[in-house]
Amino acid sequence: MNRFTGKVIIVTGGGSGIGEAAVRRFLAEGASVVITGRNRDRLEKAAADMAQDRILLFPADVSKRPDCDAVVSAAVERFGRIDTLVNAAGMNLVGTVDDTSDDDWRACMGADVDSVFFLTRAALPHLRKTKGSIVNVGSVSSLGGGWSHAGYNAAKAAVANLTRSVACDNGKYGVRANTVCPGLTVTGMVDAIMEDEALLEKAWERIPLRRAGKPEEIASAIAFLASNEAQWITGATLAVDGGQTCTDGGPEWGK
């Protein structure tokens, strides 16, 4: 498929995990992609085998407004337009309210929520011109609570509701905004879970398909929501979780 030929996509957190998988999917379907992340070496390593004429590597800390403004300016300067913004950058935070420090709380909100807000605000004028789309990477934690992840749960719930607000306010401009909500996915963020057999047994009790997702499977959902096939979808929260959220409870492996 070449659903994105001639389109320009910004992907945050594009140096690894779900973000990198999304970059590869968009490139495979003809897009030009601006790839952001904090670590230049990681970005360069991830992009070594990508189509160099259709990518722009832009190291940035997207929890900071000036960096977000710079990413958008660089995208327009290089490629002339923006068609889709994918906010895939983020961080996990393990801890209850009692044992979450002020600094950890602020870091989580910065990485998971501020980044989405600042980049959305910077990109919207350009997305209105192209009648573009925004796909934010939330989590099953966007849809319900869980144990020992107070800050992360709060941040990902905020992402989903911010996305709905953007969808409401910008539909009149032809701009769509949706949230993909991955369940347990094999990325660096869940290494501790994937290496703990006891935690995995708890996870499989809550996941009907009884396995973790792959970054490429989340990227497929992101690409669908960004494509013209999803022209009548906005403000949605799409669970891509192996059925976890159709069971009678949320993630239990931190209990």
Rank of each mutant, 00 (worst) to 15 (best):
D196V: 05
V97G: 02
F58C: 14
A221L: 03
N153F: 02
I218G: 03
F26R: 04
E77H: 04
R164D: 03
A219H: 12
G14S: 04
V23D: 11
I222D: 00
D102S: 09
I35G: 07
A239G: 03
D102V: 12
I222H: 10
W253S: 01
M109I: 10
L56G: 08
V72T: 06
L57F: 05
T247F: 05
A31C: 06
G183I: 07
F79M: 06
P208A: 04
G110Y: 07
G151S: 15
E252K: 02
G13Q: 10
L127Y: 13
L209Y: 00
A150P: 09
I193F: 08
P251E: 13
V190Y: 10
V180N: 00
C168P: 00
A212F: 11
L143P: 01
W147Y: 14
S148K: 12
D83W: 06
C246P: 04
G37P: 06
R54K: 15
R210F: 02
N39F: 04
M50S: 11
G213Q: 08
L85E: 06
A203N: 11
R38I: 05
N178H: 06
L162A: 11
K156A: 02
A192M: 06
D49A: 15
M109R: 04
A60H: 10
R210P: 01
R65L: 13
G243I: 00
F224M: 02
G213P: 00
R176A: 04
R206L: 01
A89W: 01
T84M: 07
T130F: 15
E77S: 12
E217A: 11
R25H: 11
D53I: 07
P251K: 08
R78A: 07
W232R: 12
E195L: 07
E216L: 09
P182C: 05
D98I: 11
I9T: 13
L238K: 05
A230S: 09
G254D: 06
A70P: 01
G80L: 06
F4H: 09
K64E: 15
G243S: 11
V76A: 04
A60N: 10
H149Y: 11
G17M: 07
N228K: 14
I207T: 14
D98C: 10
V8N: 14
A154H: 08
T179I: 02
S63P: 05
V11P: 09
C246G: 06
S148P: 00
Q231Y: 15
E197V: 02
D191K: 15
A192C: 01
A223I: 05
G171A: 10
A230N: 06
D61C: 08
I134F: 01
V71K: 11
W147L: 08
I207Y: 07
L209T: 11
G15N: 12
G249H: 12
G144F: 00
A28E: 09
E20Q: 15
E217N: 11
A123P: 02
E20D: 14
D112N: 15
S142E: 03
R128Q: 14
C181V: 01
Y173F: 15
C246R: 12
I233R: 08
P251V: 05
V76I: 15
A157T: 08
T100H: 05
G110D: 08
